[in-house]
Design a protein around this nucleic acid. Structure first.
Lengths: 126, 126
DNA sequence: AAATTGTTCTATAAATTATATAACAATTTA
DNA sequence: TAAATTGTTATATAATTTATAGAACAATTT
């Protein structure tokens, strides 16, 4: 899987990595059960520090997206049912974005169209 | 308009304020043309620093949501057409969230339902 | 005329982000 | 079995971000 880190971005490196791994799974480049590279090798490949990758992995674990097996490695979780806390977190994250879209002049249909086209994008290769 | 700042949140205060103002406009509590409180009085009301409110206002201005009239005050913008850069910014912000929803086990219909219910929420009072 | 406005500047402190190095025990590989 | 690799933990440093504070300015508003 190809990861592109932009050191100049105002988005923290570990967040960029977290997001691109999530998008890689959503796109079907990574599947449940797949192992992720070791924090050391991944860091070396990306040209970033080991702890930055580690932080990303633990963020992914907290979100329930990967499982870290101590002294072994990280594996993409097999999708369980959505927990209520995960759903609440998603709502809290979606809300300001949807509000912004509305305030900038989009109507409901346009927002749904935007979301639908992104959804379509992810299901392209599966 | 009621603003609730959580000093313990890991979301910066100026971001919390920015989001709540955006949501206030989306909800219809604030209308295009309405003036916002002065940075000093707002800061005093919220119990935060003047510069924190100022940072939020400038973030809102950058997003095209308010207009700051120098030496006068801040006013909610009259919604123009969505610029392509604003749309691209929205896409970039929506993408990781939608990916996360998919990875956590939601299907397309459930994502759209989630978005629709939030949209419904905002149009409740108008 | 006085008060209020956004703006700008300097300053400080705490938290966050990113890197670096080292060491540990457990697992995996050769 | 020995060697290499694994995630983990700890300490350390530096730059950036976040938040506050106070002061001063010119322009607007009262």
């Amino acid at each position: 899987m190809i990861i592109q880190i932009d050191a100049e971005s105002d988005i923290p490196i570990y967040t960029q990595l977290t997001n691109q791994i999530i998008e890689g799974i959503a796109r079907g480049d990574l599947h449940p059960g797949d192992s992720l590279p070791s924090v050391r090798s991944f860091a070396s490949d990306l040209g970033v520090n080991m702890h930055t990758v580690n932080k990303s992995y633990h963020e992914l674990e907290k979100k329930g997206i990967i499982e870290i097996i101590p002294k072994s490695g990280a594996v993409v979780s097999t999708a369980n049912e959505l927990t209520s806390s995960s759903k609440q977190r998603l709502i809290n994250d979606f809300r300001p974005l949807i509000a912004e879209a509305l305030v900038l002049g989009m109507n409901k249909e346009q927002v749904i169209k935007l979301v639908t086209s992104i959804l379509q994008d992810f299901s392209q290769n599966q």
